[in-house]
């Protein structure tokens, strides 16, 4: 029924561990976080030079000191953001990560998982699988990321990219689009960081790739059922809610995820996911 394909990486490693966030995801995630914060803080300073609304951003949270300095930061960090973003999109498509982790998104799934999340019944057992709310938010924020770059480019090069400016409905509207995307990203950031702190093992996964910081021979081996999506089986039951790696692996009861057992710590991570688990179920 299921067959395992072990990757090179897994074959070489004597004690394979379940990698929830592959190393490339972790690198682009943190580079993006750094670049994005530079872009946002310098962007606020630039905004202050000619505010769109009746407020400005406090000098204490802006970057650059004045318009000229902020522009230098903005147009330096943009390279980091863009190159890193392109690497992320290219690898996301090439590895199939986007398809595997972000699709499908169904309205029913989103509604059910939103309800579960709001009643603290959302499962975080398997950090390698995103719930529907995560899928929606991550897909949404990736789209916002693309739009903020495109609106930014159209403001930077409104002559060379006049078709892009037209697409946004004009230079002035592109400014509002750019600002709105920033606001959405900041809102996402607040929720994202809050949830990552509520489910600390998701933060650990984005830092070290795994849920816990264990590298020894007692490391748990991958559970074939992790990818067995149709059966509704859950993996990682053994260590769910606990940081210690299980010493007796393979005792999983393939039980259905029932609401009472689903309140676990784990999994609210930006752009996160598996992909290079080294384990494929076909």
């Amino acid at each position: 029924m299921t067959s395992l394909a072990v990757s090179d990486h897994q074959a070489e490693t004597a004690t394979p561990a379940k990698v929830i966030q592959p190393v490339w995801v972790r690198i682009v995630h943190w580079v993006n976080a750094f670049a994005m914060i530079l872009m946002i803080m310098s962007g606020w300073q630039i905004y202050n030079a000619s505010p769109l609304f009746s407020f400005t951003f406090s000098h204490s949270i802006t970057l650059g000191g004045w318009l000229g300095g902020a522009l230098l930061w903005h147009f330096a960090a943009m390279w980091l953001l863009m190159v890193n973003g392109l690497v992320y999109l290219a690898l996301g498509f090439a590895t199939g990560r986007f398809r595997k982790k972000l699709l499908p998104i169904t309205p029913g799934g989103v509604i059910a998982d939103t309800k579960a999340a709001l009643t603290f019944k959302l499962s975080h057992d398997d950090l390698s699988k995103y719930n529907s709310v995560q899928k929606l938010l991550y897909t949404g924020i990736i789209t916002v990321g693309v739009v903020i770059v495109l609106s930014g480019l159209s403001m930077w090069k409104p002559v060379q990219l006049h078709w892009l400016v037209s697409l946004f409905g004009g230079y002035d509207i592109a400014r509002y689009v750019h600002f709105t995307c920033m606001a959405l990203i900041v809102a996402f950031l607040v929720i994202h960081v809050a949830l990552a702190l509520l489910v600390p093992k998701s933060l650990r996964a984005m830092l070290i790739g795994r849920e816990g910081g264990y590298y020894g021979s007692s490391q748990k081996t991958p559970d074939p059922r992790c990818r067995q999506e149709a059966a509704g089986a859950r993996c990682g039951e053994d260590d769910a809610g606990a940081d210690a790696p299980p010493l007796h692996h393979g005792r999983h009861q393939p039980r259905r995820a029932d609401a009472a057992h689903r309140l676990r710590r784990g999994r609210f991570v930006v752009g996160g996911g598996i992909a290079e688990e080294g384990l494929e179920v076909q």
Binding site: T62, G64, G65, L72, F75, A76
Partner: peptide, 19 residues
């Protein structure tokens, strides 16, 4: 906020690169 001279030098270089 950040205005160490090394950061400033780097930013100037990037600006020249942007030119």
């Amino acid at each position: 906020m950040v205005d160490s001279s090394s950061a400033e030098e780097l930013l100037k270089k990037v600006s020249k690169f942007n030119d």
